[in-house]
Nucleic acid binder design. Structure first.
Lengths: 201, 201
DNA sequence: CATTCAGCATGACGATCGTCATATGGTCAA
DNA sequence: TTGACCATATGACGATCGTCATGCTGAATG
């Protein structure tokens, strides 16, 4: 086995990525260490050479995934005009594709309550929530903090509810209603789906 | 042991109530059958005389808990004037007490993603979501379905986010922002907390 | 008072959980 | 080429998981 400088970091990232997918898809407690390692192409024993415990992995995976999403929102919000930036962020979030792909969905909507039960993971999550609200605030016409927080709440709740719907029609109605509440009333766009391979959240 | 007519139904309800509390507090997969039965004052073996499996218990508990909340919302919405009814529903939902008591909180905010992963439980949940949106629609000034769905999304998302906050200030800001978005702009009430022993959801 | 039987307790099954000790074997330095 | 090293594999630990078979017990029925 090569001992290249960053080989271990690469493997560690593979483990974290696999865990991120499996946690979102099946729930944190429903996925064992061996399932994560198998998905990463390894066997269960080597796990503790990379992470001190499963709980440490959970905290790191949740924090890193949400931090990536928050950074993406900031990048979009700071790049172009407020209107298109808002439509890109909101449109990709309130998209049926985001609802369908739970394994790549925003951590807030896939693991929110489960992370809330883990106090050690919450500070990092809350920091990213602040960043996401800040990014939204830069795009919103009424750019106060309250509007950004309520818009983020609407987006998170809509995706959670859409995943609970028993028909595509109800899910679509929830997403459309949330878009109508978050986006300015004059921009009724069909929400151009982002082509990035990244998570929507 | 007495064999009174409804003794078994009573025990069954005790099991379901204990499961509802434990599932919300620790997560569905983090609570075993023996923990549920112990919380109900019994031992693990008798469980399968009441429920065919743990998954059946999960589906029933989630559906029943949310159906109770939906029925309560309908009762409130149909009882008094739209304004006070809306303030009662929204105020008790977007209340720090609801955020704090996860073990009695609304199923949508405590078990939403976990239930979404269980397809067999979703029809009953979706039905209650429709009832809750209908109740909200009866109270909202603009009583169309879209406004009700977006208001419900905002409420659910706000409670999820408030539980992820690492400071009471952030949690309070999220709840206040959501109230500002859902309630009519002229009624800035301090949200009279409901004195019922029921869950807020 | 005797009998029956439903409701629950007891105990066990194989499987899987998180964690760790140790073996292996490929890769880099000398 | 040789030796050391370290990332990973193997295998095992006790605990707990969901589920079921069986035994006990006391209330209801005659």
């Amino acid at each position: 086995m090569r001992k290249a400088n960053d080989q271990k970091a690469e493997t560690r990232q593979r483990i974290a990525d696999a865990a991120g997918r499996l946690f979102r898809q099946h729930g944190i407690d429903a996925v064992g260490v061996d399932a994560i390692m198998h998905a990463a192409g390894l066997t269960h024993g080597g796990f503790y050479g990379h992470f001190p415990s499963k709980e440490a992995l959970v905290a790191e995976v949740a924090a890193a995934s949400l931090a990536r999403a928050a950074a993406r929102w900031q990048r979009i919000a700071r790049a172009g005009a407020p209107g298109p930036a808002l439509r890109q962020i909101v449109g990709s979030y309130l998209d049926p594709a985001h609802v369908a792909e739970m394994e790549r969905g925003c951590v807030l909507t896939t693991l929110g309550p489960e992370v809330a039960r883990r106090p050690e993971a919450r500070p990092a999550i809350a920091a990213s929530v602040r960043v996401m609200a800040d990014a939204l605030g830069r795009c919103l016409p009424a750019g106060d903090e309250a509007c950004a927080l309520s818009a983020l709440s609407t987006m998170v709740g809509a995706v959670v509810l859409a995943r609970l719907a028993d028909s595509p029609e109800l899910a679509a109605a929830i997403l459309a209603a949330a878009q109508g509440a978050v986006l300015p009333h004059d921009s009724i766009s069909p929400a151009p789906p982002e082509r990035s391979a990244r998570s929507a959240g």
